[in-house]
């Protein structure tokens, strides 16, 4: 009986003082790169539920979304984090672009207004992040200034970055171009939609978080 009690006390204190990494992990990137698709994949893998709505219309995520207490494990290592899915960062928003998807003018204008606010919120939240996953669309030009500005700002704030080249399942995806655009960063090519290379992504996350 004493032995069991002793064991319980030991385990209790061991767990209490074990250094557990708990961080705020942000998903950043341009609109329609697949941030919410990746957020959903992470949440489905480790919580068994999804996080947000995904559509092919840009700026679907217009508010910061947070999923708390996600724990991912690999062997003896584990990372505990709050996942922050942010609205896509853009330099221009034209409500007429939304109308091309069949939206009424009123709804398109409303969406554009919410989207501009979302971009501002994303930038404001940069300072709150401990680690950031920059999600890029591998089929698009990686040299866009938005990508460079986001990554440059994270570098200036000394926030660790993992770059994800998403949509590698598409024929137009150019993984090497993304790698050569950001040679100083670890770049993982994935398809968040189909789960391709998702284990490599988790390994990359362990490396970046340290």
């Amino acid at each position: 009986m004493v032995n069991i009690f002793e064991k319980f006390i030991k385990t209790f204190f061991k767990n209490l003082f074990r250094r557990k990494k708990h961080i705020k992990l942000g998903l950043y990137g341009p609109p329609n790169a697949g941030k919410t698709t990746l957020a959903n994949k992470i949440c489905e893998d480790w919580l068994g539920e999804s996080m947000g709505k995904v559509t092919n219309i840009p700026h679907e995520t217009r508010e910061i979304q947070i999923k708390e207490q996600i724990v991912i494990k690999s062997g003896k290592k584990e990372i505990s984090f709050n996942l922050v899915d942010t609205p896509g960062i853009a330099t221009k928003i034209d409500y007429e672009d939304f109308m091309k998807f069949g939206m009424s003018a009123t709804n398109a204008k409303k969406r554009a207004k919410e989207a501009t606010k979302g971009v501002i919120d994303s930038i404001r939240w940069l300072d709150n992040m401990d680690t950031v996953v920059v999600v890029l669309d591998a089929t698009k030009d990686p040299y866009s200034q938005v990508n460079i500005t986001i990554i440059g700002n994270l570098e200036a704030r000394k926030i660790p970055v993992l770059i994800v080249a998403n949509k590698v399942d598409l024929r137009k995806a150019k993984m090497k171009k993304v790698q050569s655009a950001f040679p100083q960063y670890h770049v993982v090519g994935i398809s968040a939609k189909y789960g391709t290379n998702i284990d490599e992504f988790y390994q990359g996350l362990f490396k970046v978080v340290g």
Partner: peptide
């Protein structure tokens, strides 16, 4: 670098029916 993000923020604050934003490089 911080000014670049501030420029994006300021741009977003001013978007209206006439001003759609900027292209930056």
């Amino acid at each position: 670098k911080e000014e670049e993000t501030e420029l994006i923020k300021a741009t977003m604050e001013e978007i209206d029916k006439d001003f759609k934003g900027i292209e930056l490089s």
